[in-house]
């Protein structure tokens, strides 16, 4: 039970916020995080178009995927903001968590903050502090013993 990292992307694909909690492997492709953000956004973009073509009915809506080691949870707001949370496999649904981060943290501390420029990387200490506290208080957050 653990949380690895969280990405927040805006509608244009720039990464507004990134933080990691229990992450073992660092970006394998390049030391620069920027490369990883681009790859992550690119993958989500392709998955979205893949899902909308693959879907047997008109509705679509990508929720999550899992590999043998981690599960990626995805939440997109109507305004195009994308929240991506990587957890381990024991977390089966993180939709409520992501929705909470959006409506009770992002909206409260970023949107309602007059000095935060929208679509600009978030450097609000208040937001990152609250977010960190929220993530650490989650039932499935537990820093690995080892």
């Amino acid at each position: 039970m653990t949380i690895h990292n969280l990405y927040i992307f805006d509608r244009n694909g720039s990464c507004l916020y990134y933080n990691e909690w229990n992450r073992r492997k660092q970006a394998g492709i390049s030391k620069e995080e920027l490369q990883e953000f681009k790859l992550m956004y690119g993958m989500l973009f392709s998955i979205r178009s893949f899902v909308s073509k693959m879907s047997p009915v008109d509705k679509e809506g990508f929720l999550s995927f899992q590999t043998s080691k981690y599960r990626l949870h995805y939440y997109e707001t109507p305004s195009g903001l994308r929240f991506v949370l990587n957890t381990d496999l024991s977390v089966s649904n993180a939709r409520d968590t992501l929705q909470h981060i959006y409506s009770n943290l992002y909206v409260e501390y970023v949107v309602k903050n007059p000095v935060c420029v929208p679509s600009h990387s978030l450097d609000s200490e208040l937001f990152s502090g609250r977010l960190d506290a929220f993530i650490r208080a989650l039932p499935y957050y537990s820093p690995r013993a080892a």
Binding site: N5, G28, M43, S55, Q66, T67, K69, Y70
Partner: peptide
Amino acid sequence: MFHSLFAIGSQLSPEVGSSGIEMLETDVF
């Protein structure tokens, strides 16, 4: 397209030694 998503999925893993995408969940399938 899925073939490449599968590969990227394992590359972006926060953990070492991850496989590619094993299950992808959406609202309808």
